[in-house]
Write a protein that binds this DNA or RNA. Structure first.
Lengths: 216, 216
DNA sequence: ACTATGAAAAGTGTTACATAAATCAAATGA
DNA sequence: TCATTTGATTTATGTAACACTTTTCATAGT
């Protein structure tokens, strides 16, 4: 005769571990990572899974209607932070065009203003990094191959802004365009087509380009 | 009777794919990554897979991710402006906390080296000044109305350099061209003609343009 | 009512596996 | 002879599978 089977457990609704209860709070997937970056990525993952960390960027994180999920919140991780060195100050004379119509010398009274390039170009040094452009997809607005971009990740990506976007694992610089037709990443070069950002697209906005520097 | 077995191949020394011939140039391991960070990490790995480069400013555009859907032909690649500590990170196979500090993080503690834009852009502080462009005569090389130019008076104006020239009392930015036909000030805009600098012209070269800055 | 027990559902790190790509040497062909 | 083809060999790479672990809930037992 059959002895009593333990009736504990059994199929029941709502049992089991809850989704999102892991240390990342979201689903995961496996990726192959080169050894030299394993430690760095682990550190980053630990950083962002640390809830009480005083993330400088909290609160200034862009919210975009890009079909992005809450992954937006974790902007904290990437980009090389190269804040301006606050020790060294170089003040430069700035001549307005009308003034230099004459022949002033840098030492004379025609100097209207002196400024520090760091102050002029970097407004939020903790959230600013630089990168170098390769490619010509933005040449119409003067961003050329080899130019250095100053990127501020604390600025909200708005319609019309030049943004750095990681789309399906590739970094691009494009103009963000939010139309009734959807959200687009628009090159400034007629040889390249605009890219429609679909709902299911895997996209992360890394920051807003505030300046482009060409060196001759 | 046994027919002839193909004798091609067979065990041999040194055959096969070489170690380090993958896109990362080093061994890899699998890691579990939260979905929200997959794109960012992919982008970062693509950026950093410029193996042989020790050039601080260089960066190569990633090739194809194998098996990955990389439909996006339209791209502008980037090179990072790599700070010194990142070079160390690449060259030294250490996993100390110091090295991980090269990994981008919003926390100030993780920034080892700060970049000074003044140092990057200005080489001779005493002889350098800024001015703001008016007009579009140099738009072909990305110098646009409103851009800020960094001008070094200590550099010698040579053929091909972008210079600030005062010609007959008027200040212009042009490319200096010294040909057998004479000395020319050449606009980078087809709507404007090159200007021949005659013997009797009243011309002073104010300096050589080293950088142009566009702000968005 | 309170605790203990065990099944269920999800998380996590690692291994395994199926191709893909790269490389070399023998075989083949010009 | 010398270049090309062929196929084995080796490493690379993305994903599936696995062996746990952890969390959660329903029921049993006290």
């Amino acid at each position: 005769m059959s002895h009593e089977i333990d009736k504990r457990g059994g199929l029941r609704q709502g049992s089991g571990r809850k989704k999102g209860s892991g240390k990342f709070g979201e689903p995961t997937r496996v990726m192959r990572i080169p050894h030299s970056k394993v430690t760095a990525i682990q550190a980053w993952l630990n950083l962002s899974s640390n809830k009480n960390s005083t993330d400088v960027l909290d609160g200034t994180v862009p919210k975009v209607g890009l079909g992005l999920d809450k992954s937006n919140k974790d902007f904290s991780g990437f980009g090389w932070y190269l804040p301006a060195n606050d020790v060294s100050f170089i003040e430069l004379p700035l001549y307005s065009h009308k003034v230099v119509a004459g022949f002033p010398s840098p030492a004379d009274d025609y100097v209207e203003e002196r400024l520090d390039l760091n102050e002029k170009l970097i407004h939020n040094k903790e959230a600013t990094f630089l990168l170098v452009v390769q490619g010509d997809s933005m040449q119409n607005i003067g961003i050329k191959d080899g130019d250095t971009l100053i990127v501020d990740r604390s600025l909200e990506p708005r319609d019309g802004k030049i943004v750095i976007a990681a789309l399906d694992g590739e970094l691009t610089v494009k103009r963000l365009s939010m139309k009734s037709t959807g959200t687009w990443l628009v090159p400034e070069n007629d040889d390249y087509p605009p890219i429609l950002v679909r709902e299911e697209s895997d996209i992360v906005i890394w920051g807003v380009v505030t300046s482009a520097i060409s060196q001759f």
